[in-house]
Write a protein that binds this DNA or RNA. Structure first.
Length: 834
RNA sequence: GCCCGGAUGGCGGAACGGUAGACGCGGCGGCCUUAAAAGCCGGUGUCCCGAAAGGGGCGUGCGGGUUCGAAUCCCGCUCCGGGCACCA
């Protein structure tokens, strides 16, 4: 008997697929496009090519490929492309360390990824491959930049920005985690720099409301984005400092607590601060405080539980609702980049204001009664953030705060002191980077004309070669003088190119559009093609991109749609977030030395085993711990399938083995029924939340059943026919996970190409059996099981159940007061007086 | 602190409110073999009664509840993982 040799099998079929161009698909306007067939876009997040693919990639692409195969075999023409997010810091940092140009390391990594993806047998239409670092690609990234610039959605501004001293570049808000650089973990600093932004805030509302257009996204991802966008409704209220003649609008979500405002706080960065204190006693302490705050890492400032600090300004503002003069302070708990950089402080009903008031011994005035006056806490339950009747609030006294809320806002509006207002936590996306390995921002700075976009026909602005990649606080591109110095496209006078490059998240925010038309030399993509394929029907990737990438891609697609380049306003109709694979219960990392190299397992057990294993570990949205025993187990199962197939294989494959023989009975019928059961179960679980683990388990059961009945069936021609059918069915069902083995087994038994076969259908006749087992319960406890005819009526079943041996004994213990009958499942006798 | 997940055998995990533990791993026993590996077959939640057949108790993180019946639904906790966190 021969052995299952996965490597040989896999190589053979990979050659076939390549030769046949099996995964190529055509869109509108392309040869072979069939408008009559339904289409589907299955997409996995493109990898950043660094070194070799890891198990996270394996899982992502194994899951995505299974979905792609399943859709194909259900009649869809599936577009399933692949590319590389190949601009980025690791290649550049490597270049700084070793001097090797980023292009070389990147090219090497792409080759390695591409080779391994092919070894995994992922069904990719390689004719659509893109890499974001190529001029053919970033030409269109630059084009998108210009589109946004022209539309006023890209702008340049001087603002306090996050600066990572390690990477020597600015970072977007989203790339700062706990005050540290998301990439390297270094504490970020604040710098005041002129930078490029994309106006994501212009879409803040639509980024929220358009969640309604999505079909299925994990709820927690939507929640994370909602929180990130952070919409809050409230009011704007203007407080005036009479002495200085300055008006200070503030944003508040609690206009109902206006009467409780006892002081007023400005952010240390507030532009009016200097003017307010200039020439007063407060000037020096305020200056010192502001300096001290600015030296602190923004991360430290974000820590909520540290004591409040601040300095009085010696000035007051007037509370518009009651005319009270309340003192002003500067304090670092007020942030300049949210709202107006100033807050009215209501210590009785806001925890932060309360903390500040206690620290500085400021008056705390309750304006809302708690429901429960004895609530625990200091100062009679203050700060109290709940609802209740208003007090100390003039004509609103006694009214519930919720009801008073709109009245107060209306009053403010009438008085010209404010009105309703909505604020977002979301900031504009800072897209410029002072780094080398990225797409150059396609503008020119002209002393006469200012910022001039590079004309579209001059794109791409090619990334020049440099000798030194090390960042020096400005872009390494500054050194490429012959590239930097350029004639102004508008007036022709001496001008300089922009030397910042784009955040690599810009590259990956539109790649799924380029796949649809990768060779287009005159446009980023053809609109008809985009409208045909978009939105992506199923997007697959790790949760770690729940905010950054997905938010940016949503923004770019909305912007392009607004500009008339695209119909779709939401790029990803369905999102699947795979869970992380751990090893020994811990996140894999090189420093822990617990990484798993997919290549090693593919070498030892074959790609089919590795792929099937990651899908079998558990529900794919959850994580799982990688074990060698687990891979071996799956490998054993595939070998078992191969072995029985090879034992049963006739000299010539027989197309009849694709269908269940008619009129089988006895053990043959049992096996055929199991096959139908497996088809039904696999089909349902595939569609329901991608329950791949149970799909694979069902196929395992089918194979086990074939082994169990094999001796009985092998003797007869009809028995062998059912065996072959069942094993071919198992191969067909496992095909989305183990495409090579499935192809091999199918070719042996049936002949032809299983990946082109329609997904099998269960025989409804075989899904039901003549008899069913009924559970007999007494008081909810299982006491017996009886066999009854399928569809047997209540009376008949109850009668049988009552007389069933063990059940009957328990019935004697008392009076039957109730009988429950669930057809085809169980009966339950409720007995009293036992 | 707030918002999500999760908790089921020795382990990963299955279970439309209706037989808890499918499938896999591990371990145990048997067959095959001179022997081993591989393979094939059979057990495997736990405790008690029984020589056996069999029967019974207890069991899905903890405490309540709804129901003829709860791993599943409701209320209140505990622990673990993830996200957010001075956003006015």
């Amino acid at each position: 008997m021969s052995r299952y040799e996965p490597r040989a099998i896999e190589e053979r079929w990979q050659e076939v697929w390549e030769r046949e161009d099996a995964w190529r698909v055509a869109g509108p306007g392309e040869d072979g496009f069939d408008p009559s067939r339904p289409s589907a876009y299955v997409l996995e997040m493109l990898p950043y090519p660094s070194g070799e693919p890891h198990v996270g990639h394996l899982k992502c692409y194994a899951v995505g490929d299974a979905i792609a195969h399943f859709r194909r075999r259900n009649g869809f023409q599936v577009i399933h492309p692949m590319g590389y997010d190949s601009f980025g810091l690791p290649a550049e940092n490597n270049a700084i360390k070793t001097g090797e140009p980023p292009l070389e390391a990147t090219t090497r990594s792409i080759e390695s990824f591409s080779r391994q993806f092919r070894e995994w047998g992922i069904s990719i239409d390689w004719s659509r491959e893109v890499a974001t670092h190529t001029p053919e690609y970033y030409r269109w990234t630059q084009w998108i930049f210009l589109q946004l610039l022209e539309a006023g959605l890209a702008y340049r501004d001087r603002a306090p920005v996050h600066w990572c001293p390690e990477d020597a570049t600015v970072l977007a808000n989203e790339q700062v985690v706990d005050g540290r650089c998301e990439r390297c973990g270094t504490e970020v600093e604040t710098r005041n720099l002129e930078q490029w932004f994309f106006r994501t805030t212009a879409f803040a509302d639509r980024l929220l409301t358009d969640f309604d257009l999505l079909e299925s996204w994990p709820e927690h991802v939507v929640t994370m984005q909602r929180n990130w966008i952070g919409r809050s409704e409230g009011a704007e209220v203007t407080f005036r400092c009479e002495e200085a003649g300055i008006e200070f609008p503030v944003f508040t979500t609690r206009p109902d607590t206006l009467f409780g405002a006892t002081f007023f706080v400005l952010a240390p960065e507030h532009p009016d601060l200097e003017r307010l204190v200039a020439g007063t006693d407060a000037e020096e302490p305020v200056r010192q405080y502001v300096n001290q705050v600015s030296r602190e890492a923004p991360g430290a400032r974000a820590e909520g539980d540290r004591p409040k600090t601040g300095v009085p300004l010696g000035k007051t503002v007037t509370n518009p609702v009651n005319g009270e003069e309340i003192p002003m302070f500067v304090a670092d708990y007020v942030l300049m980049d949210y709202g107006t950089g100033a807050v009215m402080a209501v210590p009785a009903h806001d925890e932060r204001d309360y903390g500040f008031a206690r620290e500085f011994d400021l008056p705390i005035r309750r304006v809302i009664e708690g429901e429960d006056p004895d609530a625990p806490g200091d100062d009679d339950g203050l700060p109290y953030t709940g609802d209740g009747p208003m007090v100390n609030s003039g004509r609103f006294d006694g009214e519930n705060n919720r009801e008073a809320y709109p009245e107060i806002v209306t009053w403010l509006e009438e008085e010209g002191r404010g009105g309703p207002s909505v604020n977002f936590r979301l900031r504009d996306w800072l897209v410029s980077r002072q780094r080398y390995w990225g797409a150059p921002i396609p503008v020119v700075h002209c002393p006469d004309c200012g910022i001039v976009p590079v004309p579209e026909e001059d794109l791409p602005v090619i990334l020049p070669e440099v000798d030194d990649y090390a960042p020096k606080g400005k872009s390494p591109l500054e050194a490429a003088t012959s590239w930097v110095e350029v004639a102004c496209p508008a007036c022709g006078s001496d001008a300089r190119r922009e030397t910042d490059t784009m955040d690599t998240f810009v590259d990956s925010s539109w790649y799924f559009l380029r796949y649809l038309d990768p060779d287009n030399g005159t446009a980023a993509f053809d609109r008809a093609k985009a409208d045909h394929w978009m939105p992506v029907d199923q997007y697959i990737g790790g949760v770690e991109h729940a905010i950054l990438h997905l938010l940016y891609a949503r923004f770019v697609v909305k912007a392009l749609a607004d500009l008339g380049h695209l119909e779709t306003v939401e790029p990803f109709r369905n999102l699947f977030a795979q869970g992380m694979i751990t090893r020994d219960g811990a996140k894999m990392s090189k420093s822990k030395g617990n990484t798993v190299s997919p290549a090693e397992y593919v070498e030892r057990f074959g790609a089919d085993s590795a792929r099937t294993y990651v899908c079998f570990m558990g529900p794919p949205e959850r994580g799982g711990d990688w074990t060698d025993e687990g891979v071996e187990g799956v490998n054993r199962f595939l070998a078992r399938l191969w072995r029985i197939a090879s034992d049963l294989a006739p000299d010539e494959p027989d197309p009849a083995a694709a269908r269940c023989p008619d009129g089988v009975d006895g053990p043959a019928r049992e096996l055929a029924a199991k096959a139908s059961w497996a088809i039904d179960k696999a089909t349902r679980d595939f569609s329901r939340d991608f329950q791949f683990n149970t799909v694979i388990a069902a196929v395992m059961e089918l194979v086990n059943e074939a082994y169990r009945l094999r001796d009985e069936l092998e003797g007869s021609e009809s028995g062998r026919a059912v065996l072959r059918y069942s094993v071919a069915t198992a191969a067909s069902l496992i095909q989305p996970f183990a495409p090579h083995l499935a192809a091999e087994v199918w070719a042996m038994l049936v002949g032809g190409e299983v990946w082109r076969e329609p997904w099998p259908e269960a025989d409804p006749e075989l899904l039901t059996s003549e008899t069913v087992e009924i559970v007999v319960q007494v008081n909810g406890k299982v006491r017996d099981r009886i066999e009854v005819a399928e569809g047997a009526g209540e009376e008949e079943v109850l009668a049988l159940a009552r007389s069933a041996g063990n059940a009957a004994r328990h019935l004697e213990e008392g009076e039957v007061v109730k009988e429950v009958f669930v057809p085809g499942r169980l009966v339950n006798f409720v007995v009293r007086g036992a």
